[in-house]
Simulated scan of single mutants.
Amino acid sequence: MMDGTQSDARRPLDGFDAAVWDLDGTLVRLPVDWDRVTRDVAAVFESAGHDVPGTDLWDLLQRADGTDLAQEVETTIADHERAEAIHAERLPYADAVGGFDAEGVCSLNCEDACRTALDVHGLTPHVDAVVGRDTVAARKPDPAPLLETIRRLGVDADDVVFVGDSPRDEEAARRADVAFRYVDDASLRR
């Protein structure tokens, strides 16, 4: 297997049979007020007697893992994402969806929000697998969600490119040994 972020750097996009896309910031932009979500999640901790000064949302989500607060924290975040998914702004690279033999979405957003945003923009018919933050036990940059998406696509990881917008996406691809492209990479323009 190749080092997905190094050896495949010059492989043309049309040289891949399958693509896995990040969602928010890549195909669409969810208009979630993340500061409000962070305050709401902090309130979950505070109501349980935990002090959370200066902590960001993803730190809070990690802190909740394995505690009795995990489900309430996940529900709080997902409620915001689902509410805003119907208002998702389509980004230019969504036009590249549908150009591969198999395509999936691997996102840090909840699976329901991903599916809603894909539906809103008519992308669902082109997407064969959706793995959200709540689909598997691990979250990006852990490679498990990306590998699960690839497993659901039924393709070989050597034939997949993961397209995302963040260092977390790039790290997930590196750890999964899958080729990676940033969404603003000129090679994505067809």
Rank of each mutant, 00 (worst) to 15 (best):
D59I: 10
A19C: 09
A43W: 01
L91M: 08
A18H: 06
G25D: 06
A64L: 02
R139Q: 13
A102G: 12
L69T: 07
S107P: 09
E148C: 12
R151I: 11
S107M: 09
C110M: 07
E111S: 13
D134Q: 09
A9H: 11
D59F: 14
D158Y: 01
V136G: 10
D119C: 02
A144D: 06
D184H: 13
G98Y: 08
D68H: 14
E46K: 04
V130Y: 13
V120S: 02
L57G: 10
Q71V: 15
V136S: 07
C110R: 04
R152G: 14
F16L: 00
V20C: 10
Y93Q: 13
A179H: 01
H126C: 08
Q71T: 15
E111C: 11
V155K: 00
G164L: 02
R133K: 13
A137S: 15
G122L: 06
R133W: 10
G54K: 07
E148M: 10
G104R: 05
Y93E: 09
E103W: 08
V105Q: 02
T55H: 11
D112V: 15
E81S: 05
G15I: 00
V136T: 12
S47A: 15
G15C: 03
D8I: 03
A9C: 07
G66E: 03
V73F: 09
I150H: 03
D33I: 02
V161L: 09
P53D: 07
A138H: 14
L13Y: 07
L27T: 05
V52G: 10
A70T: 08
G4W: 05
A78D: 13
D159S: 12
A144I: 12
C114P: 14
H121Q: 05
L23S: 09
A117K: 03
L69Y: 05
R175H: 11
T76F: 07
S107N: 06
D59L: 15
G15H: 01
A172D: 01
A176I: 03
G98P: 06
T124E: 10
V20S: 04
M2Q: 05
A88I: 02
V105G: 09
A173E: 00
A42P: 00
R63A: 14
H80D: 00
R189T: 13
A9K: 15
F16R: 00
L60C: 06
F100L: 01
D156M: 04
P141Y: 13
R10M: 15
D3V: 12
G98F: 11
L60M: 03
T116V: 15
D14N: 14
D112H: 12
L146G: 04
H50Y: 15
D24T: 09
Q71C: 04
C114G: 11
